[in-house]
Design a binder for these strands. Sequence first.
DNA 1: GTCTATAATTAGATAGAC
DNA 2: GTCTATCTAATTATAGAC
Lengths: 211, 211
Amino acid sequence: MPTIATRRDGVETRQAIIDAALDLFAARGFEGASTRQIAQQAAVTQPALSYHFDGKEELWRAAVGALFDRLGESIARRLKGLAGVDDRTVATLMVRHFVEFSAVNPQLHRIIMQESTQPGPRLDWLVTTYVRPLYASAVEILERLRGGAPLPATSAAHLYYLLTGAGATVFVMAPECERLTGVDPFEPTFITAHADLVVEMIVASVTQEQP
Amino acid sequence: MPTIATRRDGVETRQAIIDAALDLFAARGFEGASTRQIAQQAAVTQPALSYHFDGKEELWRAAVGALFDRLGESIARRLKGLAGVDDRTVATLMVRHFVEFSAVNPQLHRIIMQESTQPGPRLDWLVTTYVRPLYASAVEILERLRGGAPLPATSAAHLYYLLTGAGATVFVMAPECERLTGVDPFEPTFITAHADLVVEMIVASVTQEQP
DNA sequence: GTCTATAATTAGATAGAC
DNA sequence: GTCTATCTAATTATAGAC
């Protein structure tokens, strides 16, 4: 069956390119990551990228999309096991899940941070396509933590960046953390302890914030 | 006095180049920012950069150094007015000062984040030259907040990235914040409220953390 | 101290063989 | 579907006039 074999090879190559692209875009930014480096890490030649993706920008979109899909599926899987659990417990477990996902997939926040420092079409696409729904979910979780009370827009912004900043930064900056503190933030015990700290912090901040 | 006039012009040009370099390195990363863009924003021609700085890397070091010097002077100025104040109050005021500096100078954490996502000589230089002393000061402040009790290395790492992540992320990602939430994080009222939130959060987390 | 002109390298994208 | 070879444009750095 040459057709199936050929098609499967293509899918695998495509996936290898996406994985390499995620690592390099996250580490060096869109302009900083060259298509040659991505091809080398994926163990293909550079023109192979042009065959599978219509240009560097479309490769970036495909890679970022795959990562957000991973997050969406991860959240959906986690929620499935929480039927009948009370709102506050679900909310704290989702905060914990978010921190742990950020530890396992530091590329997500690295890419969001890279693109969020300056306006541009990639940031607009990122916000409208993926970040806005994520933000809505986060605000909903924060409101559940308050016992259902709605959050004003400004408080929501404060708490969202408090949560994402406190939860993800140490993993985004893992290479610095190791050099600076001697601690490897990807150690399972560190991840768990950090999630604990962030959960307690956000619960305290949410119940405090009532303008 | 042609000598003085000439020399002063050179100093001003050098400063204009550094200011432009800070903005562009912070927004687009080291590889992403081109020397032509920096020259254009500084209103000089591209070879002028080679005259004032020995290559792109040295320009980056000079710009980053100027920014950290600004932070150091800002901290020193703030500490001068706090003679005779008790440790806990000094510590909370320093946390607040840090958040406010991050709001006025978002380039600082943008550049640190850009370089901290991957190992390399620029990260090593950044950590040994500037971030390590800053980390030592931050740990000292956190210990004062605990009433003088020393912090274990792991707890220090947790709290440092909790503080810097929660305090700076919303300003680092200001363009996203505006598009996502409709809130401008550089509004003075937002900055003050965010500093309040971070101070309360870090005080609560510090007194909680005792393994 | 700053400019124009340009060298040398590297980038992303394409042509065409297999 | 993947390769080698190559094109065009953009990059950093330098030479030399003023």
